[in-house]
Amino acid sequence: MTRTAVFAREQLRAPFTLALLVVIPALFVVSAAGALNDFASALGGSLAGDAAVGLSAGWAAAFISGALGFFQAASSRGADRRLALAGLGPARVALSRIAASVGLAFIAAAAAFVALLLRVDVAHPLHAGIAVLAFALLYLAIGVLVGSLVSAPLEGSLLVVFVFLLDAFSGPGMSGGSPPPWAVSQKAADVLIAAGTGTDTPTDEWVKVAVVTGGALVAAFLVFVASARSRA
């Protein structure tokens, strides 16, 4: 069996976690979107209606994937490092660990996406699905990156939450003005909002989404490798 398959099997043996992966994003989309309208207004933003529902799907997938990515990397850090030092090397361990965790991100994104489709009409469902997945993968990468550097569960999870909150509250429609640099999910959010209204997304915007998401995964891989390398 491949290493990725073994690590994926490890993650699937936590039924409660898998249940939360599905329930939390779905509940968030169904119940929280309305409150986002009011919150955005309080911050001076213009987020409203179906756009709020759409973004809630992205953020729900992002938050869950980020948390799980962190705990996956942090909790298995010792054993993963031992395996790397035993001869597998940090790159192969990193690839297998991240590839297995991508499966979790898919599950969270799928749950959020299905809840979104049930909640509102989405003009471009395929675009919306890809954008929600981009949210999930971006934050999976952030979670793995933090988990590779911070092993303490409280500090690490708070750091992921902090990044998420900065990003979410700075995102499109949440506050007035243009999004700051740390609004990392901005491009995916733009695509998600456009998908809801039936607006076509230009190719260069898709490229930006791919670059940000892919770049985050590469950064997570490199940080994982650096943390798991031999110091001898």
């Binding site: 490890e10 043996r13 909790s75 298995s76 010792g78 054993a79 490092r81 031992r82």
Partner: peptide, 8 residues
């Protein structure tokens, strides 16, 4: 300390 994977 045993460095093992709990679920494997």
């Amino acid at each position: 300390q045993p460095l093992l994977w709990e679920k494997l």
